[in-house]
């Protein structure tokens, strides 16, 4: 009988993620995207401060695929507008856990920075 293989790896082993890797995972957190969409989404998230070139983007994608944090997706979200040569990627369940663990790590870091008055405290807390 077909059985899903239980993921035995610990997401913490992959932390800290490089900025490019984390932003790619973030871009894929809400929907499947192809390379150009990922790049646009990363630029939008970072107000244009992080620009992923083709080499950095596909190098990161290659490593994320090898680590099984993302996978190729057969679904074509924009089937009518789409170029069929494009490859779509999506987060795996483990990739989602790694991205969440990195977000928590950054949250703890921000908390520490706030406690040391490096950044202003949030009003009402």
């Amino acid at each position: 009988m077909f059985q899903l293989k239980k993921e035995s790896r610990n997401p913490e082993e992959f932390l800290p993620l490089s900025p490019a890797t984390f932003h790619i995972l973030l871009a894929l957190a809400d929907r499947d995207r192809h390379g150009y969409h990922i790049m646009q989404e990363v630029e939008r998230h970072t107000d244009g401060k992080l620009r992923l070139g083709p080499g950095t983007l596909y190098g990161s994608i290659k490593r994320l695929l090898a680590d099984r944090l993302i996978e190729e997706s057969d679904e074509r979200p924009d089937a009518e507008l789409d170029d069929e040569r494009r490859r779509y990627y999506r987060l795996t369940e483990f990739g989602y856990r790694v991205a969440a663990a990195e977000a928590e790590r950054l949250q703890r870091l921000v908390k520490t920075a706030r406690a040391k008055s490096l950044i202003p405290k949030v009003q009402g807390r």
């Binding site: 390379g35 150009y36 790049m39 083709p54 080499g55 983007l57 596909y58 190098g59 994608i61 290659k62 170029d83 040569r85 494009r86 490859r87």
Partner: peptide, 21 residues
């Protein structure tokens, strides 16, 4: 300039990305 294996796998997509940009 990229390794042949990498180029074979992603070269066309990288060129496509450059074209889009």
């Amino acid at each position: 300039l990229y390794p042949a294996e990498f180029r074979r796998e992603y070269g066309a997509h990288m060129a496509q990305l450059f074209r889009d940009r």
